[in-house]
Amino acid sequence: MRLKPEGIWILEEHDDEGTKNITLELLSEGQKLARRLNEQLCVCLLGSQVGGCIPTLTQYGAEKIYLVEHELLSECSLDAYAFVLGELIKEYDPYILMMGATPSGSELAPRIAARFKLPCITEAKNITGQEENLQITKSAYNDQVYITIDPLARRPLIVTMPPGETDIIEPNKPREVEVIKKNVEIPADIMRTKRKRIIKGDPRTIRLEEADIIVSLGRGAGNESLPILQELADALGASIGGSRGAVDDGIIKFERQIGISGKTVTPRLLIACGISGAREFTAGMENSNLVAAVNIDQKARIFDYANLCIKGDLRMIIPQVIDKIQIAKQKREKGQVLGLDTKS
C-alpha cells in the first residue's frame, strides 16, 4: 500500500465515433493540473472493445491507462460503471478523479462519491491549491455567483467539469504509455437499470427551448427562403425558429416563435436571418450565448445583439455557407483531428 493517494484520473467517454470531445477537454485541463501538482495523468478506459481509443488518449497527454473491458460496460450503465470504477479506486487510490458533467458523468460522480464517502464537486470551473488545501471554483446561482469549495480531507476528490468550456490542446504524436489491463468480474445482479434503446432526436421536432443551435428567420427572409434555411439548420443540426412576423406570415408555426409572446430561448448559437430585431423578438433571445445575424439592412436593430453581423442578402449568402459547411465536414471525416480544422 502507498501512503498517500496518487494520480489524476480522467474517466474516458466515447460513442460510436470514438472518444468524445469532453474527454479531450478534460485531458487538456488535466495536463496543466498534473504538471502543477506533479502528479501522473491517468485515464480510465471502460467499455467493451475500446482499445482503439488508446492512441488518441496518448496524443492528448494520457500517461497511464487503466483499461477494463467487459460486455456489460458496452452501454453507459451506471451500476456497472460505478462498480468497476469503485474496484479501481479501491485498488489504486487516486488523488483526483475527473469526469465530464455529461448525463452519465453527472450521475456516476456523486454515486461513487456516496459509495466511498468522498468529496464530490460538480460542474467545476477550475482547481487551485495543492496537497490538503485544494480549492475548487464553480459557477452557481444562475452564473451570477462563483463559489469556492474546500473538498475537506478525504481523497480521491471527485470533480465533474462542464463540456465546451475548455479549449482542447494541440495533440502530440501517439506514444507508448503504460496500459494496465484489469479484469473485473461484474456480478450480474448489480445491474438494476437496463437500456432499451436510443431514440434519435430530430432538431426539426425538438422543443425550441432544448435546441442547441437555432436558425431563426424573420419576415425579411420570406417564405421562399425557408428551404435553404432548413438546409442550413440540417447541416448544423439546428432547429428552426422565427420572429412573430414570420409566424404571422405563415412561414413557420407558432410553436417555433421566439419572443415575448413566444418562446424564450437560450441556445449556444442563434443565427438570425432576415430579422430586424423588434423588441418583441430580442426579449426572447437576448440570453443566447452567441448570435450571428444576417440582414440586408445595415441599421437593423438585431446587430446590436449579435456577435457576428453580416450585411447582405441571405438568399445569396446562405447557400454558399451550406456548401462550405459540407466541405468542412468532409475534410473532418477524412481524418483531420476533431476541433482543430480551424486552420482550413
Partner: peptide
C-alpha cells in the same frame, strides 16, 4: 408603444 413598435417594424 411596444405593440406599435413591433407592428411598425413588421410593416417595414
Amino acid at each position: 408603444e411596444i405593440m406599435f413598435d413591433s407592428a411598425v417594424k413588421q410593416k417595414g
